[in-house]
Amino acid sequence: MLTLQNVRRTFDSQPVLRGVDLSIARGQIACLLGPSGCGKTTLLRIIAGLEGADSGDVLLDGDSVMRVPVHARDFGLMFQDFALFPHLNVADNVAFGLRMHGLPRAQQAARLHEVLALVGLSDFEARDVSSLSGGERQRVALARSLAPNPRLLMLDEPLGSLDAALRERLVVELRAIIKHVGLTALYVTHDQREAFAIADVIAVMNAGRIEQVASAEDLYRRPATTFVARFLGLRNIFPVIGWRDGAAITSAGVFPAPQETQALLLHPDDLRLTAPETPGALPATIVERVFLGDSYRCLALHNEALLMFKLPAHSAPPAVGAAVALLPTRIVPLAS
């Protein structure tokens, strides 16, 4: 439905987007996930028409929208700070887009009630936006961008300014509302948990490029690049330092891997304690053990390599200094 083709943008001779390709299917919630400064907000603004691209194209249902001005694109955009108009009350904020589209008054009122009910703010019509709490502002902003029934809803870190507890609750609610309306949405965030909670498909961005597009599960289980793995907080990444008989040499050992592999991820979730004689087991010494409440996080030294793994809280964990054997059951090859 939305297709980006080789979108490039440079600010002050600093490349911000270095050729972005992406497709989003109708009804899908896609997420742009990446650290700040990776270009995700710029990409969103280009799609919205608030910025221009140096080259590349943005297609909606096969037609380029690059020449369509912002106000005529019929997109919805929710800003990080919500950008509620301070001189208008809740109802006037939400109805603003309806008015701009020249909807008859009666229909405006009907749609206003409908959207406010959808976000749970039915009694808030006459309220001043400055009197609202953070969560209420977020709902007003959502209602405002939903009201004109946009062809595409974009959300730029819409929960970024709220506290963590509220964020966790609202993200689930947000997904429910978007799915209920059946919109195609593009959600920008730097928060992995938010992305996992809301998105059908996640595009991880780094330094102006998309590194991987996948579902949350695939992303976590099979990250494609070192950056994606690191960004998701995964440890046990070992660069390939040489090849022997088609197997990659790393400080953690030699493992079979495809040819372009730059590094290997010994996935921490799939690193188990095992008997020393098990084939493929890595002998190691426990160097650190931290109780996290729901689990133990252990660090073990194997040759030069530090391996991280977790043990359930109710298990009897090996003591620091104990000799153990670890079996990696999922080794993920990482490109670049």
Partner: peptide
């Protein structure tokens, strides 16, 4: 952003 929000809304 206020002005941009208005523009996106048409």
């Amino acid at each position: 952003r206020l002005e941009e929000a208005a523009r996106v809304l048409g």
